[in-house]
Simulated assay, not measured.
Amino acid sequence: MFSTYDGPAAYALADWRRRINDLYAEVRATRDPVDGWRHWRDERSRLYAAHPMSPVPDKDRPAFDGIEMYSYDPGFRFEVHLEALSGEPVRFDLAGDGVMVARPVSLTRGLDNALGGELTVYWIEGYGGGLFIPFKDATTGGQTYGGGRYIVDAIKGSDLGLGKSGRLILDFNFAYTPSCAWTPDFVCPLSPPENTLPASVTAGEKTP
C-alpha cells in the first residue's frame, strides 16, 4: 500500500489496480498456462519499467531490464480444495495506512505432498473484503524476499480463479514480491509465520 494519497498518486494507484485486474483477466482467458504466464511476466515488467506507481525507484529505472523470475515449472501449478477454517484474525500493521485485519477462512488441501504443507486462506476484513494468500518457503530470505510473497490478493486483483474441477488454482509461477521489497515508499502486509511451506518454491519472482 502506498503511504500518501494526493490527487495524482491516487489516480495513478487506481490506474495501476485497473491494469493489474485486466492483466489477470487476460491470463484467466488464456488456455495455455505457460502462454498466460509469459504475458503476465512481460506486462508486469513493462509496468514496473514505466508506470508512475511502479515500486522500482526512479533512480533504478534506467538500468531496470525486467523482473527477475524463475523459469515456468508446471510442477508448481495446483488446483486445491478448500477446507473451512476458523481462527483468530491476523492484524497487519501498515504504519500510516493503519491496520489491515484478515480472518482465516480456509485451509488448502492439495499442496502437502509436493510442498510439505498447506496454506491458510485469509479474508480481508472491511469494505469489499477479498481473499489473501501470502506465503513463505525455503527460498525466503535468500533467492526470494524475506517478507514472503503473494499468490492471491483481492485488493490487487491477483487471482487465477477456479479450474474446470471447481477448485482454486494456485500457480506459484505467478507468486510475486510485495512492493515494499523494492522501496520503503510502500508498506505491505508480510506473510505470517504459520503460512510457511517447508519446500523450496523455485517459481515466481525472485528477490528484487
Rank of each mutant, 00 (worst) to 15 (best):
G66D: 04
A49F: 03
P104Q: 06
R44A: 03
R18H: 07
P189M: 10
Y145P: 00
P52Y: 11
P57V: 07
L85A: 06
G126T: 01
A95M: 08
D58H: 07
A29L: 11
P62N: 02
E88G: 13
T108M: 10
S106K: 14
Y127Q: 11
P55F: 00
Y122Q: 08
E43W: 12
F135N: 08
A49H: 10
P104E: 09
V101C: 06
T196Q: 07
C180V: 12
R167E: 13
M69N: 05
D112Q: 11
F172Y: 05
V56D: 01
W40I: 03
D137W: 14
L119I: 04
Y11A: 11
M100Y: 09
K59M: 11
A10H: 07
N113P: 10
S106C: 14
P134K: 10
T183A: 04
G87K: 01
P55W: 00
R91T: 13
Y176F: 02
T207N: 10
N173I: 00
V56L: 02
T183F: 02
Y150S: 11
A25N: 09
R18K: 15
G163H: 06
S54A: 02
I124F: 11
F186Y: 14
R28C: 05
I169Y: 03
E194I: 07
T177G: 09
A25W: 08
G128N: 08
Y127L: 15
T30P: 05
L107F: 03
K206M: 07
L197P: 14
F172E: 00
L111E: 01
G75C: 02
G141N: 05
P52D: 09
R149C: 07
L82V: 03
K59H: 14
M1E: 13
D58I: 15
T207L: 15
G75Y: 01
D35S: 13
E83C: 10
G141T: 06
G117A: 06
R91M: 14
P104V: 02
A203F: 03
G126L: 04
H51P: 08
Y24N: 01
S106L: 11
D159H: 10
N195Q: 03
L115C: 13
Y127I: 15
I151Y: 01
T202F: 13
A102Q: 04
A50I: 03
Y48D: 05
T144A: 08
R149L: 12
Y122C: 06
A138D: 12
E194Y: 09
D32V: 08
R46H: 08
K156N: 14
L13N: 12
D73F: 01
G110T: 09
A199Y: 05
E205K: 06
P62F: 11
A50C: 04
S71M: 05
A12F: 09
V34A: 05
K164Q: 15
T108K: 12
A203H: 01
D6L: 05
G163A: 07
A25T: 13
T196D: 03
Q143G: 14
I151L: 06
A203R: 00
I151W: 01
F78R: 03
S106W: 15
